[in-house]
Design a protein around this nucleic acid. Structure first.
Length: 313
DNA sequence: TCAGTGGCGCTCTCTGGAAC
DNA sequence: GTTCCAGAGAGCGCCACTGA
């Protein structure tokens, strides 16, 4: 596609900055404050945007300024374009984690926080002291919204169904194992399927249903298990297992971590289960941001070899 | 309360001429 | 051909105000 320079020169690209602020704030006054101009200037920008796009873009409504379908359709392309412009002009600013001061917001489950957090923190304190982390656990239903709104830099979860402008990559793959207190259940690894089903289980589920991958696998062979507790928090599970004659099935890395810390026993799961794949998801336009590239590479390296931690593309 | 409008002033850009 | 300068005009932002 060729660029019509004469036509583009007629367009004040600052108007797109104003449009982005208006769509983010849904208020002329707040959009003006956000971009550092007066309310009337923002109102004037909105009027020019309306003329430019031939659409009202935002209309007054009881709850504030309501975007039109045309404005909603413009929101993501405009945001993406502004990000690219920003990254383009910053391209020469080399990202040096040793001196930069920045906070990365990452959404991740508590299990990944336990596995990667200590090594990541130790690495940052030693190699990138100006970088801090804001770790959040976001409801899966809202992760894409949070990424698109720039409220998180990166999301980590089991699997994502993003949109075209989202990118993802595998962080690590892990198998499932069984974890229990040998002194309470009287079992030694490897345990049989009959032993596995003889005791009630603790299920970790981020969904609201008391049904997991183990239940699916058992159903395929015509068996089922008894659930004693279903919890959305991985961190609570080993403490439940330590105090009661119950079993739980979790990621191998996590199980070995808890077994070492709390004196529990790990056994291969006597149920055929597919490996778990933990992925990272981010906004496609982050591709050009050296800081985000650095963070992704660091996380991949820490996940593949927790003893290392040397990052860089 | 907040979006929109009018008047005004300032800044920026364009244009033409002069100098090199 | 390029650079510099000055004048003119356009456009933008601010203040004050209106109206929903």
């Amino acid at each position: 596609m060729t660029i019509d320079h004469i036509d583009l020169a007629r367009i004040d690209l600052n108007l797109l900055v104003a449009l982005d602020a208006l769509l983010s704030e849904r208020s002329v006054t707040r959009a003006a404050a956000r971009t550092g101009v007066g309310q009337s200037a923002m109102s004037s920008s909105l009027a020019r945007l309306r003329a430019l796009f031939g659409d009202e873009l935002l209309t007054r409504a009881p709850e504030g300024m309501r975007p039109t379908p045309r404005a909603l359709a413009l929101a993501e392309p405009v945001r993406s374009m502004l990000r690219q412009v920003q990254f383009l002009v910053r391209r020469d600013e080399a990202f040096d984690p040793r001196i930069v001061e920045r906070t990365f917001t990452i959404s991740l489950p508590d299990s990944t926080e336990v596995l990667l957090g200590p090594t990541l923190l130790a690495y940052l304190r030693a190699e990138a002291p100006g970088i801090s982390l804001l770790l959040r656990t976001i409801d899966r239903a809202h992760i894409l919204q949070e990424i698109d709104a720039d409220r998180v830099d990166l999301a980590i979860d089991l699997s994502f169904r993003g949109q075209l402008h989202h990118k993802q990559s595998l962080l690590y793959r892990d198998s499932y194992v069984c974890l229990f207190n040998a002194a309470l259940v009287g079992l030694t690894p490897p345990i049989s399927l009959e032993d596995y089903l003889r005791f009630p289980h603790v299920l970790t589920s981020l969904r609201e249903t008391a049904h997991g991958v183990v239940d699916d696998a058992l159903a395929k062979i015509g068996r089922s298990r008894t659930l004693a507790v279903t919890s959305p928090r991985f961190l609570a599970v080993p403490f439940l297992v330590r105090k009661a004659p119950v079993l739980t099935t979790m990621h191998a890395r996590l199980a070995h971590f808890f077994a070492d810390a709390l004196g529990l026993t790990v056994s291969p799961a006597p149920v055929p289960l597919e490996d778990v794949a933990m992925s990272m998801l981010w906004h496609a336009s982050y591709d050009d941001d050296p800081a985000h590239r650095w963070l992704r590479t660091l996380l991949r390296r820490l996940a593949s070899d927790p003893a290392s931690g040397r990052a860089g593309d």
